[in-house]
Design a protein around this nucleic acid. Structure first.
Length: 841
RNA sequence: GCGAGGAUGGCGGAAUUGGUAGACGCGCUAGAUUUAGGAUCUAGUGGCCUAGCCGUGCGGGUUCAAGUCCCGCUCCUCGCACCA
């Protein structure tokens, strides 16, 4: 009888080493079958928490970067759920976009037929399988796929609403043309003069394009009040919006044409000795004198042909051309020459500037290059009077106004006193020659793309009625499936007869459909609302659910979206608010960015370098839990780190140790078998210390130290483990706590152990443990003793008895005892667990 | 140039309000086990001229006490950059 029982016990415990390949698929299937992660959005019994991670583009393969983005986020979401929240953690796919279309074009070149839709849905299916391997708690019942007509019809619907409000408009303008991808790009998508995706040199072209009026919201977008966002993201957006305050002043050509300029230094108006217009400025042609015509035309043409990169490559070396005309400076009636130069940009301010070489570095360079007059009008205090003929650089600092008519002597500048600037603006306004003005670097969002694989813009061209919006009832304007991709890369919509043919919603006559599609950033500007009701056909999203579930509590994703996506998403949320669809101003309350995983060689992973780490192989080799744990342990999440195979071996060992630590039968009890009270106390302390530390780490997104704490707990438990200790309640508590704390990180392992140890239910629906502060208090702790900064020894100190500490010290340190006796101790500083210092005279 | 962040062992990285720097892991060393290797376990591991001294990029400062605070530098990463 006894023998049988022992054999049974052994059978339970003898497993078996930790084998993730066996347990992980089992639990993934069970969680799916039990619908463990489906969220009831109407459950009001618990506080709501919306945890969102940026949805991926369906490239067809989950790489380590996806794991790095999603696995720690999943752990954080699981933690939040264990804290008692009803957590929504959805996932979807950003499914429109160029790669799929380019694949189709490439196939067409090779005589094969590949449709982007088929390709995209295949890739999505494959990536969903890979996502399942991660063991994440995504609620797939809320899945959003942006190339589904049920999704993109709402892009079209929003577009129409924005059209009605004047927030969407079509305008001919200079645009960034990507000759490789055969489409225009938003300013945000041009990096160093090259296309963000293709890397091709961007050309400037004048084309009619669709825009969203994001500039209407520039000021509001500068306000990050109440947002818990990384500083650098806020700074990047602020710089991008580029607000500057100044004045708009009207100069006049000799002939009488008004020429507006923008300046941030109206206090330097008296120092304007020339004007510069952008080469594209509309007045250039008419103002240019006969004798300068050829040269000016040549300059304009050269500038227009230049790519953005060429313009930048010119560096500080200024070029320009005098146009043979003069303007009158309205403040002092001075006659000044008008030039054109490409350092003046048509797209910023008014496309024209006043040249104040004495107080602007660029104007100074330009004046020096072309021998123009330099007249100082700001005199720095306590310096020799500035002389335009001998100045070696522009003076951009503060000083007193000189040579400035009624303002002479006024303190002025950007740094200290703004008095001069303020008074000059008031003076300009009185005389109606200028006014205070705020200018932004931000341009309107160019949303049209000359591509097929995107949301068709629901607009029509009618010969009789002109530009007309499609009827709401006719939405969605479907992308035709039967298209032939041309090797040229040109959008097949342009030649698709059935798509082009439409009926004018106003006159009923024939009309032609717009063939441009929308930027895919449109799709990602509102997808988190759609997760709440992904299949509603009557509204883009359930307003009631949106009211309860948004703004998103925590949003995570890559820093590369600091400007593009995040700025558009904020803009769009404000538009939705103004359309009366939501009541919030900001979409994401808390934002956290993960860094990048580099190859083992500390370089960016790339096929050509051969340093790519394949997560599928990692899962096969180490298991998903090990991959998750390692990615969380590898370093601070926002920083990223180089991959290390030795590193993942380390966490694999840790998980294996947890496995055998919790399952293996204890050694035979020592003689007598009474547990050592000190050891039990030490174990309790380790357990509660871990609860406190891991909790804090999860709150702060410090996953690396959370894992480190659990390793420390494992070490403490291994040390404490003995036959006697394992019979105590403290050991039971330690086992349970270890599983609860580790569950968000290594969900499969913990679920398996939870079951094997006979605990109730699923570990993932348990409540996160609280730590007991009492458990952390030591009755006696070692302290270093420091006197006037020198460590003089170590003593055991009862925490609640500073007096005793002094007495102990007095015994240990004769010198201090002497001071004490002499009453010379000024104060003592006792820091529990740290050290004791004494300050003596 | 402007803005943000950073510099800590052989490596990745830890260090509430200033309180015994180097947690945790990797690597390394020794031992146990093993026919051997691997795996696993145990102990050790900042440096040095080792009763002690020196150590957190450099130079000053504040403090009983500085990786942490202040002043002045150097270097690195990222973002923006002729924006008037």
């Amino acid at each position: 009888m006894t023998e049988t029982k022992q054999a049974d016990t052994a059978a339970v415990y003898r497993t078996d080493r930790y084998n993730p390949q066996e347990i992980e698929p089992k639990w993934q299937a069970r969680w799916r079958d039990q619908r463990l992660y489906e969220v009831d959005l109407d459950d009001a019994s618990k506080p709501r928490y919306y945890f969102l991670t940026m949805y991926p583009y369906p490239s067809g393969d989950l790489h380590v970067g996806h794991w790095y983005a999603e696995a720690p986020a999943d752990a954080a979401a699981r933690y939040r759920r264990m804290r008692g929240y009803n957590v929504l953690f959805p996932m979807g796919f950003d499914a429109f976009g160029l790669p799929a279309e380019n694949a189709a074009v490439k196939a067409a070149k090779e005589g094969r037929d590949v449709h982007p839709a088929r390709l995209t849905y295949e890739r999505i299916a494959r990536m969903e399988e890979q996502f399942a391997q991660m063991g994440a708690m995504f609620d797939w019942s809320k899945k959003v796929v942006t190339c589904d007509p049920e999704y993109y019809r709402w892009n079209q619907w929003f577009f129409l609403k924005m059209w009605e409000r004047g927030l969407a408009y079509r305008k001919e303008s200079f645009v960034n043309w990507d000759p490789v991808d055969q489409t225009v790009l938003a300013n945000e998508q041009v990096v160093d003069g090259r296309g963000e995706r293709s890397g091709a040199l961007i050309e400037r072209r004048l084309m009619p394009q669709w825009h969203f009026k994001i500039t209407d919201y520039a000021d509001e977008l500068l306000d990050f009040e109440g947002l818990d966002w990384p500083e650098r993201v806020k700074v990047m957006q602020t710089n991008w919006i580029g607000r500057s305050e100044g004045a708009e002043v009207t100069f006049t050509s000799e002939r009488g044409d008004p020429i507006e300029v923008f300046t941030t230094r109206p206090d330097t108006l008296w120092g304007a000795t020339f004007m510069v217009l952008a080469p594209e400025h509309p007045l250039v042609a008419s103002l240019t004198s006969e004798d300068r015509r050829d040269e000016v035309r040549a300059y304009v043409e050269r500038a227009s042909r230049m790519t953005e990169l060429d313009r930048q490559a010119e560096g500080k070396e200024k070029t320009g051309s005098f146009i043979g005309a003069y303007a009158v400076n309205p403040v002092n009636e001075q006659r000044i020459p008008i030039w054109i130069a490409d350092y003046v940009l048509m797209g910023y301010g008014t496309g024209a500037i006043m040249g104040v070489p004495a107080h602007d570095e660029r104007d100074f360079d330009f004046a020096r290059r072309f021998g123009l007059v330099i007249t100082p009008v700001i005199q720095p205090d306590g310096a020799a009077p500035l002389d335009g003929a001998t100045m070696e650089a522009a003076y951009t600092g503060d000083g007193r106004m000189v040579n400035s008519g009624p303002f002479d002597g006024t303190p002025s500048g950007k740094e200290g006193s703004l008095e001069g600037i303020r008074r000059v603006i008031a003076w300009l306004e009185e005389r109606s020659i200028g006014s205070g003005k705020v200018t932004y670097r931000l341009r309107d969002w160019l949303i049209s793309r000359q591509r097929y694989w995107g949301t068709p813009i629901p607009m029509l061209y009618c010969d009789r009625c002109g530009l007309q919006p499609e009827h709401e009832g006719n939405l969605p304007v479907l992308l035709p499936a039967d298209v032939a991709f041309m090797p040229t890369g040109e959008s097949p919509l342009k030649t698709h007869e059935a798509f082009l043919r439409a009926t004018c919603p106003t006159c009923g006559g024939p009309a032609t459909r717009e063939t441009d599609t929308m930027d895919t950033f449109m799709d990602s500007s509102w997808y988190w609302f759609r997760y709440l009701s992904p299949h509603r056909e009557d509204v883009p999203f359930d307003a009631d659910l949106a009211a309860r579930w948004t703004p998103v509590d925590t949003y995570t994703g890559g820093i590369e979206h600091a400007i593009l996506h995040l700025l558009y998403a904020r803009f769009f949320t404000k538009v939705l608010r103004d359309l009366g669809l939501v009541a919030i101003d900001e979409p994401f309350r808390r934002l956290r960015n993960q860094g990048m995983i580099l190859g083992e060689d500390n370089e960016k992973m790339s096929k050509s370098r051969g340093n790519v780490v394949n997560p599928d192989l990692l899962v096969a080799e180490y298991g998903a839990d090990a991959v998750r744990t390692y990615l969380m342990f590898i370093g601070p999440w926002d920083q990223g780190a180089p991959w290390s195979y030795q590193g993942i071996e380390g966490v694999t060992r840790f998980l294996g140790r947890v496995w055998s630590l919790l399952l293996d039968p204890p050694e035979a009890p020592a003689a007598g078998g009474a547990p050592d009270a000190g050891a039990v106390e030490e174990l309790r302390r380790a357990v509660h210390g871990a609860i406190r530390a891991v909790t804090e780490d999860f709150e702060a997104f410090q996953f690396n130290t959370a894992v480190a704490e659990l390793m420390t707990l494992q070490n403490a438990m291994s040390k404490a483990k003995s036959g006697a200790v394992t019979r105590t309640a403290a050991w039971q508590d330690a086992r349970r706590t270890m599983l609860l704390l580790l569950a968000p990180i290594a969900p499969h392992l913990c679920e398996e152990l939870w079951e094997r140890l006979g605990f109730e239910g699923s570990v993932h629906v348990q409540t996160w443990p609280d730590f007991d502060p009492e458990a952390l208090v030591r009755d006696s702790i070692p302290m270093a003793v420091q006197v006037n900064g020198k460590v003089r020894g170590q003593i055991q100190v009862p925490t609640d008895a500073a007096k005793d500490a002094i007495l102990s010290l007095a015994r240990a340190e004769p010198n201090v005892a002497r001071y004490l006796a002499a009453g010379e101790v000024q104060r003592e500083i006792v820091v529990p667990g740290k050290l004791v210092s004494f300050v003596v005279r």
